[in-house]
Computed example of a mutant assay.
Amino acid sequence: MIRYSLKCDQGHTFESWFASAAAYDALAKAGHVGCVHCGSTRVEKALMAPSVAQADAEVRPLATPTSELEQKLAALRRQVEESSDYVGRDFAREARAMHAGESPERPIWGEARIDEAKALIEDGVPVAPLPFMGKARAN
């Protein structure tokens, strides 16, 4: 995993984790990296200082949201989970069925491979990446 400091074309800065540098490049090129503040997909890497551990540094539990951004992401996740149906790995199939009128429209969220998400976008199905992992990967 790699963490990048990012900046959108509107000047907002934020951080996000990616599986690798190549994964970031592929997601950014496909327009799947969006600003957590305004949703802009015109995002680039920002200047970042290396993380250096200090011997006397305070140790905090990883699961506790501490920064304002982490708190906002946790609130967004709660809102998404409370107001939409989690469809897991069936996301691409469900989104396509709703777009085609074969299934009733409703807010959904789930997981899709990058090629599935790309195909949905190319076919005009409105989708957007979420800045957190699906339920299956969150544990």
Rank of each mutant, 00 (worst) to 15 (best):
Phe18Trp: 03
Ala26Asn: 02
Arg78Asp: 08
Arg137Leu: 10
Tyr24Phe: 15
Val87Pro: 06
Gly34Ser: 15
Ala112Pro: 02
Glu15Gln: 09
Ala136Ser: 14
Asp56Asn: 11
Gly134Glu: 01
Phe91Pro: 00
Pro65Gly: 04
Gly110His: 07
Arg93Gly: 04
Met1Cys: 07
Glu44Asn: 05
Arg60Gly: 00
Lys29Arg: 10
Gly11Glu: 00
Ala97Trp: 04
Gly124Lys: 13
Ile121Ser: 06
Ser20Leu: 09
Pro61Phe: 12
Arg77Cys: 07
Arg106Asn: 02
Ala21Trp: 03
His12Val: 09
Asp115Ile: 08
Cys38Ile: 09
Asp56Ile: 07
Asp115Gln: 14
Leu6Tyr: 01
Phe91Ile: 00
Pro104Ser: 11
Glu102Pro: 13
Cys35Asp: 06
Ala95His: 01
Ser5Trp: 06
Ala22Thr: 10
Gln79Arg: 14
Cys38Asp: 11
Pro61Val: 09
Val52Trp: 05
Ala100Ser: 09
Ser103Phe: 10
Leu62Thr: 07
Ile114Val: 01
Arg96Trp: 12
Trp17His: 01
Gly39Asn: 07
Ser51Arg: 04
Val125Glu: 04
His37Ile: 14
Arg137Val: 05
Ala92Tyr: 05
Asp90Phe: 11
Ile108Thr: 08
Lys135Phe: 00
Gly31Trp: 03
Pro61Ser: 12
Asp9Ser: 11
Ala57Gln: 11
Asp9Phe: 04
Gly88Pro: 09
Ser83Trp: 09
Arg106Met: 04
Phe132Met: 11
Ala136Pro: 10
Val36Leu: 15
Leu6Asp: 01
Ala30Ile: 01
Ser67Gln: 08
Ala75Glu: 14
Glu82Gln: 15
Gln10Asn: 15
Met48Lys: 10
Val87Phe: 09
Arg77Val: 05
Arg93Phe: 09
Gly39Tyr: 04
Thr41Leu: 05
Ala46Gly: 06
Leu69Gly: 15
Phe14Asn: 02
Val127Ser: 05
Ile108Ser: 06
Ile108Asp: 06
Tyr86Gln: 15
Ala95Trp: 01
Glu111Gly: 06
Ile114Gln: 00
Asn139Val: 03
Phe91His: 00
Asp123Met: 12
Arg42Ala: 04
Gly11Phe: 00
Cys35Val: 11
Asn139Arg: 03
Ala30Lys: 05
Arg89Thr: 03
Ala128Asn: 13
Val127Met: 04
Ala92Trp: 04
Gly88Ala: 14
Leu130Ser: 10
Asp90Lys: 11
Val43His: 02
Lys72Cys: 07
Lys7Cys: 14
Ser51Met: 05
Phe18Met: 02
Val87Leu: 12
Arg3Pro: 00
Ile121Asp: 01
Ala119Arg: 06
Glu116Trp: 08
